[in-house]
Design a binder for these strands. Structure first.
Length: 576
RNA sequence: UGGGGCGUCGUCAAGCGGUAAGACACAAGGUUUUGGUCCUUGCAUUCGCGGGUUCGAAUCCUGCCGCCCCAACCA
């Protein structure tokens, strides 16, 4: 279970016994295969820009590309779209590789960078100029915008549109050498200033940026724009199906224009699908960056973040994320998936895999008055009712225990079947105990419940078959380990943090994190290694934080709660 | 008002002319030493709306309505 950073391993899309998937992308691929295109190859790629950490939305894209390549016996590349050095950084490159590997997508030795192709791209730019299909433009940023026209009005030609090729070539070369300041010139394709698709109105190919690049250093003073770099990079790598999100649909004609007008070695096909959106969070890298920069969270890997590093730290597994991506499907419809589906994906796995242990978050002392003082009994506890092979463990039981404050109520509603005065409950795996008395502090708060136990109920059985409705987890006061527990909840308090043009920061959930520094857990848990996953019985699934846990002092992050139908009942006002 | 997309259950999503899969959510029962899990059952006579074609349409045609994307020297 401790696969925190080892990754899922190359692997196969989770064999789920599912029928063959047949979304519209796979249909296209089958069509291409049937038509004998691409020599029967299928080659995809995941092309992140290294300007932020990957999030769950990227996981969807990664899995679509990766599983597609695997299902058709093809290949999968990782390519960094690093054409904008101002925003990019090696820190991001490293985190991205870690995350993609963790998910189990294997690019083998095919880690590429658009920057690997800068020389080729430059040569192709010169080619277009020579062909009279590109020119160096001297309009400034604002002029370019104005001259481009609007969606309903045609744009007008740049005064440099007919600049002789030789002159453009010379200017381009000088741009490259760094003879001009940023913004002085741009290289533009000569297409159609009246084109109904704005992207086709003489788009920029290169802009001057006199900043060093994290990989090419100060070699370049000009950098290619996304449109000029992306498709050609696909072509160079022999990508057969270039998958991207819906907003690039309007770029497709441009993508194809370059492919048609350049002597590229291959003609890839761009296919667009809807990106993933989730309720109760935000997904844009810009907004996530803002959360990090303004310290609304502790970093890109804060467990409340929808980043893969955040989810990993929360306790999610690669498998759960993969299953989630499968369930979400692929289509072209803008959609927002219910966060519950993600949560369900991790619960499903952990219910099957996670060992059950006992922990008390908010301790309330329980004394068994008829239990011998000083006696310690080792209670055999089943590790996982869902897994017969999980075995058992021994947990010490004594006269003084702690139970959850929530599990005792002096004035209990009718359907409350936990501990109450005069009531009897089962202490999981141990004995039946009956509440005889309570001890209160000066303020009238119950600080101790005094019970008697039934010695005949060893193991928690009911000796005479009497009905005992409640079963509580417990820890021995003398043996319990004290640990820090972090209870994470949704980052936002509303499903759509930006609905109605709202400032998403206004909708942050003030209770997204509750830190409990003195939770009590059964003794063995105090020595658990970082990355350990378990279920705190009746409370939820927990993960020993890989960053803040120390030897002998694990910090537990709540990965997910358990479904709580009592809470729902009570909230619904029906318990009485 | 130009161009490109999309509209099937609360949320995703199958369906591609033969009479609405599945998942999550929700609801009701059952099992249960986790008010967890599991099991059973229910949950779109209807596919944005209106016409048309057809023996038959969510699937074809047509008109309308709604939502998203495009006027960064971002990707």
């Amino acid at each position: 279970m401790n696969d925190d950073l080892k990754g899922a391993g190359p692997g196969a899309p989770d064999a789920d016994g599912d029928a063959e998937r047949n979304d519209f992308i796979r249909a296209f691929v089958r069509e291409d295969l049937a038509a004998g295109r691409n020599d029967g190859r299928v080659h995809t790629r995941f092309p992140p820009e290294p300007n932020g950490y990957l999030h769950i939305g990227h996981a969807k894209a990664i899995m679509i590309n990766w599983t597609l390549s695997q299902e058709f016996g093809g290949k999968f590349n990782l390519r960094f779209d690093d054409t904008n050095p101002e925003k990019e950084d090696v820190e991001y490159v490293e985190s991205i590789k870690t995350d993609v590997r963790w998910l189990g997508a294997d690019w083998e030795d095919r880690e590429f960078h658009a920057s690997d192709y800068f020389d080729q791209l430059y040569a192709w730019a010169q080619h277009l100029v020579r062909e009279g299909k590109a020119y160096v433009c001297s309009l400034d940023e604002e002029q370019i915008r104005e001259w481009r026209g609007t969606v309903t009005e045609a744009g007008k030609a740049s005064p440099d549109r007919e600049r002789p090729a030789a002159e453009s070539l010379d200017l381009l070369e000088r741009m490259r050498k760094g003879e001009f300041s940023e913004g002085k010139y741009t290289l533009r394709a000569k297409i159609d200033m009246a084109h109904p698709n704005m992207k086709m109105r003489d788009p920029l190919l290169y802009r001057i940026r006199r900043v060093p690049h994290h990989r090419t250093g100060d070699k370049w003073n000009i950098y290619p724009m996304y449109d000029f770099a992306h498709g050609q990079s696909d072509a160079i790598e022999g990508i057969t199906h270039s998958l991207c999100s819906l907003e690039f649909e309007v770029h497709r004609p441009l993508y194809e224009w370059f492919i048609e007008n350049l002597p590229v070695p291959y003609k890839p096909r761009q296919i667009e699908f809807a990106r993933l959106k989730l309720t109760y969070t935000v997904m844009s890298k810009r907004k996530l960056l803002q959360l990090v920069k303004n310290n609304h969270v502790a970093g890109w890997d804060d467990p409340r973040m929808p980043t893969l590093s955040g989810l990993r730290r929360l306790g999610y597994t690669p498998t759960a994320i993969r299953r989630f991506a499968e369930r979400v499907g692929v289509a072209k419809r803008d959609s927002t998936v219910d966060l519950d589906l993600l949560k369900w994906s991790i619960r499903e796995e952990l219910n099957r895999e996670a060992p059950r242990v006992m922990a008390v978050l908010r301790p309330l002392k329980l004394v068994i008055t008829n239990y011998p003082e000083g006696q310690v009994e080792n209670i055999t506890c089943e590790n996982n009712p869902e897994d017969p092979n999980a075995g058992t463990r021994e947990v010490p039981f004594t006269r003084e225990l702690y139970i959850e404050q929530d599990d005792f109520r002096e004035d209990a509603p009718r359907k409350y079947f936990r501990l109450k005065p005069g009531g009897e409950v089962r202490l999981k795996h141990a004995y039946l105990v009956k509440c005889e008395d309570v001890v209160k502090d000066a303020a009238g708060n119950v600080v101790e419940v005094r019970c008697t136990y039934d010695p005949e109920s060893h193991g928690g059985s009911s000796p005479d078959g009497r009905k005992v409705q409640g079963t509580l987890q417990w820890v021995s006061a003398a043996h319990a380990a004290r640990v820090e527990v972090r209870l994470y909840d949704n980052l936002f308090r509303v499903p759509f943090p930006e609905e109605g043009g709202a400032d998403f920061l206004e909708n942050l959930n003030p209770d997204s994190l509750e830190v409990i520094t003195d939770a009590l857990v059964e003794p063995g848990l105090g020595q658990v290694a970082p990355g350990y996953r378990c279920q705190f019985m009746r409370l939820g699934y927990f993960f020993a934080d890989p960053v803040d846990s120390k030897p002998g002092a694990p910090v537990f992050n709540r990965t997910a709660t358990l479904k709580d139908s009592w809470a729902k009942l009570e909230a619904g006002g029906k318990p009485e």
